[in-house]
């Protein structure tokens, strides 16, 4: 594999990006890699834009990455993916939850929420590897909107299996599920397992 693989997770406070990045960093560790994760707590959690960084590799130094350095952009919300597109490297992979959370600046401030075409057009200049995942719809069908984050992790896990950079690493769906199960209450384990599997199916 190449030396380091960089993930950038973005979304809106309350969407479960914190759990998702916690899972992701621990999957890296479980796969026998060095792994680091960084996020910001506090004010931004109150419904604001949030991002977290996860890095896996043989040797990882910085906890965060800069512009153009993300191999994988995992976006929980469609406006936020556009806000963070600058992080994605050329030909990187974008996994985008098909969900819009309309900010107050649009509801009451008269600003305009970007259309899907604008998102596709912006990404066309960076990479052909863009996958929209109906995380919100799938979670709703499973009966709990809060598992949309695990649906996305499922989709990510499947896409990573096709990532040549990770060839030879000890990653399997079971690695992911074990890490997820350690982090959710016992009564939600089965639900999260299904969410994960539905996410994998969504990108088949």
């Amino acid at each position: 594999m190449k030396n380091v693989i960089n993930f950038l997770l973005c979304g809106v406070g309350g969407q479960g990006t914190v759990l998702a990045s916690d899972v992701l960093v621990n999957v890296g560790l479980a796969a026998g890699l060095e792994a680091k994760q960084a996020e910001v707590h506090g004010m931004s959690q109150r419904g604001g834009s949030v991002i977290s960084y996860v890095r896996w590799g043989r040797e990882v130094h910085a906890p965060i990455i800069g512009q153009g350095e993300a191999d994988i952009l995992l976006a929980f919300e469609k406006l936020e993916v556009l806000r963070n597109i600058r992080f994605l490297r050329a030909d990187g992979v974008a996994v985008i939850n098909n969900q819009a959370i309309v900010p107050l600046t649009v509801t009451t401030g008269g600003q305009k929420y970007p259309a899907d075409e604008e998102i596709r057009a912006a990404f066309a200049a960076v990479t052909p590897n863009v996958r929209f995942v109906d995380g919100e719809r799938i979670a709703e069908e499973l009966g709990n909107l809060r598992v949309a984050n695990v649906v996305l992790l499922g989709a990510l896990s499947a896409l990573l299996e096709r990532e040549p950079a990770l060839e030879g690493s000890a990653l399997s769906a079971e690695t992911w599920l074990k890490v997820i199960e350690e982090r959710v209450p016992a009564k939600y384990v089965e639900l999260n397992r299904r969410a994960f599997e539905e996410g994998r199916r969504a990108v088949e």
Binding site: Q45, G47, G48, G68, I85, R89, P103, G109, A122, V126
Partner: peptide, 21 residues
Amino acid sequence: VLEASPAPEVGPLPARPPVLC
């Protein structure tokens, strides 16, 4: 060393400041 950073221009986006819940 900066070549891998395409950073496309996107128009002005609606801000999403933190708000009272």
